[in-house]
Simulated assay, not measured.
Amino acid sequence: MSAAANEEPEDSGADVEHLAAVLKRRRRELAGGRATIGGSSVVHAVEETMWVGVRVPVVVCRVAADPLRLRPSNGPVTCRRCRKRADGRDIRVGRGQTELEV
């Protein structure tokens, strides 16, 4: 294998900076704490976690790992797994669903 095959492309630093900026913007967009995934109507609770040294938004139930698929939502949390894992955190519950006892 040649030495050139082991070298990083010159623009890889710019790619990393761009991705970090996109993830930072996504964190701001999801600051309300609720999101849908892709075109789904299910509303999930959102929290932050560290991923390769960058804070990223994730759904509490961890059903989706890609923060770029998350869409901000103002609706109440309707994901049962998120509600169950909320562990007493203050999340709005969807219509027709019972409040979690804490």
Score class of each variant (00 low, 15 high):
93 V>Q: 07
33 G>K: 01
23 L>S: 04
35 A>T: 07
5 A>R: 05
47 E>W: 01
95 R>A: 11
24 K>E: 12
53 G>C: 07
84 K>L: 13
40 S>W: 02
8 E>D: 15
38 G>T: 03
12 S>K: 04
47 E>Q: 13
60 V>Y: 01
92 R>C: 12
6 N>M: 14
75 G>D: 15
59 V>N: 03
17 E>I: 10
89 R>E: 13
24 K>Y: 03
32 G>H: 02
59 V>W: 00
76 P>E: 14
85 R>L: 09
12 S>P: 08
3 A>I: 14
43 V>S: 00
5 A>D: 15
55 R>G: 12
90 D>F: 04
28 R>C: 14
44 H>C: 06
78 T>R: 06
65 A>L: 09
53 G>F: 01
55 R>Y: 12
85 R>Q: 06
6 N>H: 08
64 A>S: 11
33 G>C: 12
77 V>F: 01
69 R>I: 10
37 I>D: 12
38 G>Y: 00
99 E>Q: 15
60 V>F: 01
52 V>S: 15
82 C>T: 00
1 M>F: 06
52 V>P: 10
68 L>P: 05
69 R>A: 06
33 G>Y: 02
63 V>F: 04
33 G>H: 00
52 V>D: 13
72 P>K: 00
90 D>A: 11
79 C>A: 12
24 K>R: 03
39 G>A: 08
61 C>N: 03
70 L>K: 01
2 S>M: 10
61 C>I: 03
35 A>G: 08
14 A>V: 06
71 R>C: 13
36 T>E: 12
40 S>M: 08
19 L>P: 07
35 A>R: 04
16 V>Q: 12
75 G>Q: 13
47 E>S: 11
72 P>S: 02
47 E>A: 10
60 V>Q: 01
39 G>M: 15
72 P>T: 02
20 A>C: 12
73 S>Q: 02
55 R>W: 09
94 G>T: 08
70 L>T: 03
94 G>W: 05
98 T>Q: 15
8 E>G: 11
85 R>T: 09
84 K>I: 15
5 A>E: 15
7 E>C: 11
25 R>L: 15
47 E>F: 02
18 H>E: 15
85 R>Y: 02
73 S>C: 08
